[in-house]
Design a protein around this nucleic acid. Structure first.
Lengths: 337, 337
DNA sequence: TCCGGTTGTGCAACCGGTTGCGGTTGATAA
DNA sequence: TTATCAACCGCAACCGGTTGCACAACCGGA
């Protein structure tokens, strides 16, 4: 089954030339005369010749595929990122091999192996929530594999990273709540192992401090899932002195927060203001549409891919200093504040 | 860069045997003695040998990868499907190569080429909304490539298909609206080129007919995007005799419908009942959580992958009759009806 | 006419596993 | 002792495109 009978040998025979010439002609090698190139290309076209990229990849170890590791592809942030990456990757004639870690450390390690075994030319990665040991990434980097981390990055790994400026983003979010006269502001954050979570928490604290509002640890909740966020939100709202505003640092936590608010039958923004850090189509699924900081998924995807290609398309061994790119999350005003 | 120096030749040299023996030992070939197998495996283990699957794939044309073509991976349906597929695919030691058509016909054709060029062993596909010509799929099928369509299937292509029983599902949805005393029931469907859309429309009509409710063409709207759905919903709600229930046939149309309802400041379910055909986490993002028919994304994914492997793992040329599998969408009661 | 230098092609090795076939070994049967 | 046969393993070709190097053909100048 699956026999694609046309190879460069067929073309060579048909033209009475050698397969090396065909190969070079197809790749626009300067040694080959224009006449030969034209002839080869014409025949290739008419035969619907499709080069066997596995064979090609096998020979020169360039697979024309980029590996991507994401925690999961549900919700809206990662799909946006992927969209952005695909735009660049497709432009360059590459394809994306997408693997999910499902927030599992073992799966992440395994996925990395799969990517290497598949000869990917570079890797884009957002680490799992559970990952605390980064040797698997370190090994890959030492092998010389170009890799850029995005969103869930890992510091002190001497690799490129692109992410939103979480601190400023959440600073702006909280500032916006303060400016709309909220004073008891809660934050629903995620796993504090992740840099993005601690950063977003930091922005939150900075805004409060700047405005002279004391930081109340009771109003800081950290959740691993929408379900946990819902529970914690209910707990918050049942305090004798409940918050008048909540900042949810991701779309996942946001679903939990909103579910909690619905359960309490509270009105947004009358009873409580809500602001999120979430991607576009998601925001507008709520009523009223949420005020939110856009985490710039699409742009992060584009930028990550661009940086990766800077490495891949560079001369070998011309490794340069890793760069860290921060994108500024845009505040989008909805009706929830 | 990226040199994985250990090959079967290294193992062979180290043990003083031939590389063919190593290869066979690693693959549990019956010709090889258990002692040799053990020795080889032990050395392979200690050297952290990882077979170059590109080389292997190149030789015997089995890449251990399954191609997947989806229109897009946003929202919740397709991610659920992918999740289901990955479970099976991963179990079998394969990996998924996911390509998005972005609802573009050209991209779909191109993606198919990419999959073939990458030697995928089988393809899972959900066709783009724009696709009206299916020659590209036909060509692939004729080549002997195993392929199973899911959700957005294409009839008269003599291929396997797995999808929800749309007719019964939407029949049940509409029946549920009728049983909760709604009489002017609207349906927001998608592109009627797609089988799923006409089927869901058919189920809608069947339920109404069975209950003796006349079908009112004014209450049937067909939209290509959430934005269009929102517009059309607004138009519906502004009729002098507006519907008292709406059935949205997908999560995409649902977002538009709900946005329209919000804009009219109508209460769900007091002013209008809403029922959807949408995936689980999505349902609960609304307030109240929606009543919905689950489109069984996860199960569709699993089943599609299972069927595909029936072909891949079968003896060559033992092609069997294509099968069409219908899964029953489950009604989940929320607060919107 | 001879020579150095280009230009355009072909030859054959190569990438790393896989596999058909043939050969060696030892045991068993005749 | 010899024929037979299974068990086990090695040789070398092979998959299809890529590439270093050799080489022929041609050109202009001496």
């Amino acid at each position: 089954m699956m026999n694609n009978p046309i190879t460069i040998i067929d073309i060579a025979k048909l033209l009475g030339i050698s397969k090396s010439t065909v190969s070079r002609a197809l790749n626009n090698h300067p040694d080959i005369s224009q006449a030969t190139k034209d002839a080869v290309k014409k025949v290739a076209e008419s035969l619907h010749f499709k080069p066997n990229i596995v064979a090609s990849s096998f020979r020169h170890k360039k697979s024309k595929v980029i590996g991507l590791i994401v925690p999961q592809i549900s919700y809206f942030f990662f799909p946006s990122v992927i969209q952005g990456m695909e735009e660049i990757v497709h432009d360059k004639g590459y394809t994306l091999l997408i693997l999910q870690s499902n927030e599992s450390f073992e799966r992440e390690v395994e996925n990395l192996d799969i990517l290497v075994a598949n000869n990917v030319e570079g890797i884009l990665a957002s680490v799992s929530r559970k990952t605390k040991n980064f040797d698997h990434f370190r090994k890959i980097i030492d092998m010389g594999m170009p890799i850029v981390f995005f969103d869930r990055v890992v510091k002190d790994l001497n690799a490129d990273m692109v992410l939103v400026d979480d601190i400023t983003g959440s600073y702006n979010a909280v500032m916006h709540l303060i400016e709309t006269n909220r004073r008891r502001i809660a934050i629903c954050t995620g796993n504090l192992n992740l840099l993005i979570c601690t950063n977003r928490l930091q922005g939150y604290k900075m805004a409060l401090q700047e405005k002279g509002i004391p930081i109340n640890e009771d109003l800081i909740i950290s959740c691993q899932s929408p379900e946990e966020a819902e529970q914690e939100t209910l707990r918050l709202l049942n305090l004798e002195n409940p918050p008048d505003g909540i900042f949810a640092i991701s779309d996942l936590t946001m679903t939990g927060v909103m579910r909690g608010i619905y359960k309490m039958k509270m009105q947004v923004p009358k009873d409580i203001a809500v602001i999120g850090f979430c991607e576009e189509p998601f925001r507008t699924m709520y009523n009223p549409p949420l005020t939110a900081i856009r985490p710039m998924g699409f742009e992060i995807g584009r930028k990550s891919a661009e940086i990766l290609f800077e490495h891949i398309l560079r001369e070998p061994y011309a490794r340069k200093e890793p760069q860290v790119v921060y994108l500024e999350g845009k505040l989008v005003i909805g009706g929830s504040t």
